[in-house]
Design a binder for these strands. Structure first.
Lengths: 223, 223
DNA sequence: GCGCGGCTGGCAGTTTGCTGCCAAGTTTGA
DNA sequence: TCAAACTTGGCAGCAAACTGCCAGCCGCGC
């Protein structure tokens, strides 16, 4: 595409990134690795929606790795988003130290480096194609990846950040309330109450309510 | 019955007690209080069976109080027995200090005091009718009663003594196993497995599996 | 042997919990 | 103001769990 592989291209804002390099994201077929503070950094809302709404999965043969900071699990919704991705075969790891540079490397051939988050104005993105530079970025990425822990490991010992309502639901569950009663008490329909419970079970990584009760207590979420 | 109220009668063994004074037990209509190490002390096996098998409940107006030592909850079965009684309206309290004398007082009129548990031979029981003595025994009973805690309170902070199987079931529940799978793993039928689970829920004082999971963990029963 | 009580497992019926689907209401952003 | 996205709640079908009933088995004492 670019006549000169050694010419780095700097793009202004996610819109331009999407317009000029968006096709690269969808065309990965071997390896797609990404490092960011949280899933909001890359992918403007519309792209994210597209990916989450659709049942998108990495096609066979494509390895997708995402490396995030703990901030990526700051609230229920973010955490659920990660779990959704993980459920679709995306590998996710959490790196406790601040990620040096938000980065994407596609198929070992192309790297995109984000500039610092701007105080105002569009964020700058630089697309790199020089083989040596891409290889260097990629090897740094893997070094960090290897020293990070998986999402599952990270989540194991750490209570999820729950909304007030979720904590209230946990309380009611912990008191032994039937769904019917608890829903009425929260002025929720049975349907919605159970939706909430199911979401909480997901966050607690529990296969049964018994296990959820156990997990909730061992994570200190019940009083 | 006895021509002389001030004559104490000593009976040899539970058989004689049942024969000569058994009718008193069933005829209480106001107050029946009892202190013992555990429910096995009074009531020979046949009498116990009769009471537990039948759906016996204290008739309205009759207050039944039982004061036991913690030994009365030494194993699952004993504990379940107490819960059954409690469920039928019998008041039960647990006295941590060794009960000085195993005693029954019926309708403020008759007291039965057990002799020390014999090394061999029948245990001796003394039936007392003298109003002043009965009143004295009764007031001592109530003093002890008042300073003891209810069964519910006692159980709240204390893990029930569980059989190996029950602990194994708890483990499987805690791992999130479905009943089907867990039953197969224990070589139990689904029916029996669920029976066990229901029994454990009772012992844990739990209304739902979630609550059971919580209780089990907070009592330290899961690893 | 016989009967008895206790434990077990199968069956059936009920309750409780779970989830996809859709319609209606609400929020959001252009 | 309109449309798209999100949230909610009802419904329906299903899965999981709970329970009563009964028949069969086993160990016990007579």
């Amino acid at each position: 595409m670019s006549p000169d592989q050694d010419r780095n291209v700097t793009l202004r804002g996610e819109a331009e990134l999407a317009a000029r390099a968006g096709h690269l994201f969808g065309n990965a077929h071997e390896e797609f690795v990404c490092a960011a503070v949280d899933p909001n950094t890359w992918a403007a809302p519309d792209v994210r929606d597209q990916i989450l709404a659709s049942r998108w999965k990495p096609p066979p043969g494509l390895r997708v790795c995402k490396l995030y900071n703990p901030a990526a699990l700051a609230d229920e919704e973010s955490e659920r988003r990660l779990l959704t991705m993980a459920g679709r075969g995306v590998e996710i790891r959490i790196c406790p130290t601040r990620l040096p540079q938000e980065t994407i490397v596609i198929d070992r051939r192309i790297a995109v480096l984000a500039g610092p988050a701007p105080v105002q104005g569009p964020r700058m993105y630089t697309v790199v194609r020089s083989p040596e530079v891409v290889a260097g970025v990629r090897s740094l990425y893997w070094a960090t990846w290897e020293s990070s822990i998986t999402l599952a490991e990270y989540r194991r010992g750490r209570p999820p950040a729950l909304s007030d309502q979720s904590r209230e639901i946990l309380r009611l569950l912990g008191e032994g309330f039937k769904d019917e009663t608890a829903a009425r008490r929260l002025s929720l329909s049975l349907r919605t109450y159970r939706r909430r419970v199911a979401e909480i079970l997901t966050l607690l990584d529990a296969d049964s309510r018994f296990q959820a009760g156990r997990r909730a207590h061992e994570l200190g979420l019940l009083n």
